[in-house]
């Protein structure tokens, strides 16, 4: 257990809660329909569209969070553009940061 000025943290309580939640979930599952048969009742309803093959139903990585990226386009466009992959640019950033930090240390020292 770790104590802090505003409380404490002990993982044991969380683990007990997790075990209780799992037991409850297992109990609910055990009350389910036992006569269920795989591949019969789980078939899709008939509809006009042809059924997609199973692998085509998998959502690929580039489709995930597209709305998030679209919404933050103004942040992402310049951020991605600064990641040029060119090592000269990396060294320029390095030089610029050294200069900035040195100036800050001197200016603050003078003030």
């Amino acid at each position: 257990m770790i104590e802090s000025p505003s409380g404490f943290w002990g993982p044991v309580a969380w683990i007990i809660a997790l075990i209780v939640a799992l037991l409850v979930a297992y109990f609910i599952r055990s009350r389910g329909e036992k006569a269920h048969k795989e591949g019969v009742q789980s078939e899709e309803f008939l509809m006009a569209n042809p059924r997609l093959s199973e692998e085509k139903t998998h959502v690929r990585a580039h489709n995930i969070y597209w709305g998030f990226f679209e919404g933050l386009k103004k942040y992402y466009d310049p951020t991605i553009n600064t990641h040029t992959g060119i090592i000269n640019d990396y060294v320029i950033w390095f030089t610029a940061l050294i200069a900035t930090v040195t100036i800050i240390l001197f200016i603050v020292g003078v003030i």
Binding site: E54, E55, T57, H58, V59, R60, A61, I64
Partner: peptide, 10 residues
């Protein structure tokens, strides 16, 4: 989601 879940890919 993209690497571990989903259907078994052929």
């Amino acid at each position: 989601q993209s690497a571990f879940t989903g259907p078994r890919l052929p």
